[in-house]
């Protein structure tokens, strides 16, 4: 699915990367543990997390992840936006719990990594 569709499904708010919403996303991974995210080796992945700090963006940069959804109504800080913009990432705020966000995306056809 395109990121635009993902944003609609999650009733999310795009905070960074509006110009990249037509990118394709195929897989989803939900975690607050960045070391787990760093074990992944897959493209076209959206990270769903509740961890709203700079290391989430850094981790996504290292793992070549281009889209991050912040669930549980977590707010994205300006320093995160600045770093994400530098690396052309899409950041989305979502008021749903991680469980609900993942359930909706799974029902819409997003695939698990494993």
């Amino acid at each position: 699915m395109k990121i635009n569709e993902l944003v609609n499904i999650l009733e999310g708010r795009v905070v960074c990367g509006e110009q990249f919403l037509d990118r394709e996303i195929e897989y989803g991974f939900a975690s607050d543990l960045m070391s787990d995210v760093l074990t992944l080796d897959i493209d076209k992945l959206v990270l769903i997390t509740g961890l709203n700090n700079l290391q989430t963006i850094r981790t996504a940069e290292m793992a070549d992840i281009e889209c991050i959804v912040f669930a549980r109504n977590k707010r994205i800080h300006p320093s995160m936006v600045e770093l994400a913009a530098e690396h052309q990432m899409v950041l989305v705020e979502c008021r749903f719990s991680m469980f609900k966000a993942v359930a909706r995306l799974s029902a819409a056809g997003l695939k698990p990594v494993y």
Partner: peptide, 30 residues
């Protein structure tokens, strides 16, 4: 922690500039 990853990020940029294959860049920077 606000600076954690700055060096890795700089290395990633350098490796991209000299056209190291993306799969190798990813393994190294992770």
């Amino acid at each position: 922690f606000s600076k954690a990853g700055n060096a890795s990020s700089a290395v990633k940029k350098i490796l991209k500039q000299i056209n190291v294959p993306p799969a190798i860049i990813k393994r190294l920077v992770v």
